[in-house]
């Protein structure tokens, strides 16, 4: 019962905040709305027996990415925007139609797959101790060791790339 109530509350919060994010005039508010959505998603993770993912999610997104966004928004000094949506009405309508059709199809796919029982997914082996830190760590350092290491290289490359791109005195004309 509690779970159901929590779920619907979180879902409502996430969707509302997401809508708020894309319609709000001020970029700073949009970023803050995203934080709310991300918090709700962390709540979902907890509900789904993935506390470790939830914790990492909060650290990475709220702690790092969103802060980075806020920095940039403030750095560029972006205030309230007058024309925040695409300028032609045609493209807006087209985008909205695409949105509706896409969402409808996605939900329909879920219905066909699960409610009509069209999708048959066998259950995996591990049943207990889902999502705790040791078991995920074990998996990361055994089966996924190589991708894990490569990911660290990717991050290094991203750091260097970001530094080079953002460095002011590297314009080609100079």
């Amino acid at each position: 019962m509690l779970e159901t109530v929590l779920f619907f509350a979180l879902a409502l919060l996430a969707v509302t905040a997401a809508i708020g994010m894309i319609v709000h005039r001020s970029p700073v508010y949009s970023v803050l709305m995203l934080i709310i959505t991300l918090f709700s998603i962390a709540g979902f993770y907890v509900l789904l027996n993935a506390p470790f993912v939830a914790a990492v999610h909060m650290i990475v997104y709220a702690g790092a990415i969103i802060v980075l966004f806020l920095f940039v928004v403030m750095l560029l000094d972006l205030r309230h925007e007058s024309d925040r949506f695409t300028l032609t009405k045609f493209s807006r309508v087209l985008a909205f139609i695409a949105f509706l059709v896409f969402l409808g199809e996605a939900i329909l796919l879920v219905k066909v797959a699960f409610i009509d029982g069209g999708l048959d997914i066998g259950l995996g082996g591990q049943v207990s101790q889902l999502g705790d830190t040791p078991s995920i760590g074990k998996l990361l350092f055994t089966a996924y060791l190589l991708p894990f290491e490569i990911a660290s290289v990717l991050l290094l490359v991203a750091i260097i790339g970001a530094v080079i791109l953002a460095k002011q005195n590297l314009k080609p004309s100079q």
Partner: peptide, 30 residues
């Protein structure tokens, strides 16, 4: 299914944002 539908809604909202917002940072957020 409930989780999947919530995820679908969030994803679609993201799509809508990408398609309609002019601000590159908001597009990124989406």
């Amino acid at each position: 299914e409930y989780y999947l539908i919530v995820a679908a809604i969030l994803f679609s909202i993201g799509v809508l944002g990408v398609l309609t917002r002019r601000n590159a940072i908001i597009v990124f957020l989406c």
